[in-house]
Design a protein around this nucleic acid. Structure first.
Lengths: 343, 343
DNA sequence: TTGTACGCGTTATCAC
DNA sequence: GTGATAACGCGTACAA
């Protein structure tokens, strides 16, 4: 008989409650509770006794019941609708790491399609999460209104994206400062004919990158750069868009740099320049991205990009969760330009 | 005043319960319950009346209380420890899609480090999830034993990885069949000096790819191919390993194909071959992967790889959840080789 | 088809 | 520092 099977056999019943522990430790159920609570007024000796009994019985507090009774679940819902962007995986890692290491659990909700955003939010509210975090793209005012109607969570946080909605807490990088830094770099390096490649336009939770870039260029050089949009942050879509836009174009009219709203687009752009247009990066066309995804530093791409301070942002998000306030919690962060070889 | 603000102002109290709806609809609380339950014996008229009252009050059942009372949460924990592998993002999307579209919610648990696996499982058990799904790599027998000690969930599922552990349900691709198909393809294309690039060796939940490949090669050609391992499924690690292994080697002794345990390794391998060794793919060294991540079809990689039927696997996982049984639910699936240009 | 005790396992609050 | 009472919001089982 393996050790595993012995364990299986000796397994105690699954439904050990605080009452059982209380009986075993000869204390009241409430004392058991205190033993599991930080800074509770309980003598070290009793706590020790309780913990030992709990260990023997395999007792762990039931978080469902705790949430029901206290109306705080230490649970957040994370709504995502944009799994084509590799940066999402990084964000998921950073957010779940910050949350979990500080005692918060994460409900990952895949917003299946555009019409599913509102039901997804309603669903989260039925779990009585303490906050709902939006890290997708298709959240417009309509969705935020749905969130509000299905009000049940105290906080609605928009992460890595800016929102002016007053009932929302936005934690994001300062797009204007970042884009300003990028623009300055592009100008200093002497690029003259940029093409801006943007993602989908959203109504309420957006990035201010494209408009800032165009405005700055206009201001300093008095011309408005060309720009193209794709309907999702997807490298393949970006590659197609770049190919279609530039393939028939005479060399002299090609852009000398493509400024991309994020790395997902930038990576596709590099692929298209090399393998569809048959040109070199950065010699023929340079490329600059945003996010600094892991791929960006691969020897194949060596992408110049802007890195967001995701860890700081995630930690601030937990600060917000632990704060009782609900308003004036918006905050922007500054990242830094990571210069590699693509521009 | 915007519509948003009006809604805010008119918002009803957040704590609407079934009792409130019952009062408003002039029925008992239990009738309200039935209205929200599928195939409950309730007259359409009453249900309609209840639903209307519920809508007006903004009532939605509290899933915490439901789980507490029924001991079924329709919630699963998804434990992940391997965020460097882009395939994880695809798996997360497919799993959450299948789960959510069939009424299941997902707790995403980031297993922060090796020692955190057991606490992570314990934490999931405190949420009283109906099942725990492991999609990482660092789950050995010790961890599974911890899972068992913190028993509270009915099912422990290992997804996309094989386990012989009797208390575990394993849903995976048939590695032997898949590797056999790959091996046959490699032989048919006339490759003679393969190098096998594997990921970390795990104890209980493993892939049978490397051993199968080596055994088949041995059987048919009577030689054992060289193999190399990296400690994580990370493209950068793979690139480094390939570089170190091959950079000083005379051309004649280089492998003519590198067979990778998955795409994460394969993409890094291609990068290293091109940019560090200065060779061509597939002309000098061919590469073959496993998973068919989105990157694999980019014009830059055109990776020949093996695609798992992830959607079918995810749907089967939900079947398993909805099944009352616990044993004999293991199942393997067959995928297909996707031939592109890299091999 | 509809209504009624009771229990699920905690927490908040107050009494000792 | 410790024990006790009353919720928290719903499900189950059974009765009407």
């Amino acid at each position: 008989m393996t050790e595993w099977h012995r364990l299986k056999k000796d397994a105690l019943p699954a439904n050990v409650t605080a009452d059982d522990v209380a009986a075993a430790a000869n204390v009241s159920r409430w004392t058991v509770n205190r033993a599991f609570k930080k800074d509770a007024s309980i003598s070290p000796k009793t706590r020790e006794k309780v913990m030992q009994a709990a260990n023997e019985l395999g007792y762990l507090p039931d978080l469902r019941a705790a949430a029901l009774a206290s109306d705080r679940s230490h649970l957040v819902a994370l709504l995502v609708d944009d799994f084509a962007n590799p940066h999402k995986l990084v964000m998921l890692e950073r957010l779940t790491r910050a949350l979990r290491s500080r005692g918060w659990d994460t409900l990952l909700v895949n917003t299946l399609n555009r019409d599913d955003a509102a039901p997804a939010i309603a669903n989260a509210s039925q779990r009585r999460v303490d906050a709902t975090i939006l890290i997708g793209i298709q959240f417009d005012d309509e969705v935020l209104r749905a969130a509000h109607t299905a009000r049940r969570f105290k906080k609605l946080i928009i992460f890595a994206r800016t929102s002016e909605n007053p009932d929302t807490i936005s934690i994001a990088v300062d797009d204007e400062a970042a884009t300003s830094e990028i623009t300055q770099y592009v100008m200093e390096r002497g690029y003259e004919r940029p093409l801006y490649l943007a993602g989908p336009r959203t109504v309420s939770a957006h990035l201010k990158r494209k408009e800032t870039f165009l405005a700055l260029w206009q201001k300093h050089l008095n011309t408005t750069p060309e720009s193209v949009s794709v309907p999702a942050y997807d490298a393949n879509l970006a590659a197609d868009a770049v190919t279609i836009t530039l393939s028939e174009r005479p060399k002299a009219e090609l852009p000398d740099i493509i400024v991309c709203e994020n790395d997902a687009l930038a990576l596709g752009t590099i692929d298209a320049i090399r393998h569809r247009l048959g040109l070199r990066v950065p010699n023929d066309i340079a490329v600059i991205g945003f996010d600094d995804v892991p791929q960006a530093e691969s020897p194949n791409y060596r992408l110049t990009t802007y890195r967001q301070p995701l860890t700081d942002m995630a930690n601030y998000l937990v600060d917000v969760l632990e704060n009782v306030e609900t308003s004036d919690l918006d905050r922007t962060f500054c990242g830094r330009l990571v210069v590699r070889d693509s521009a």
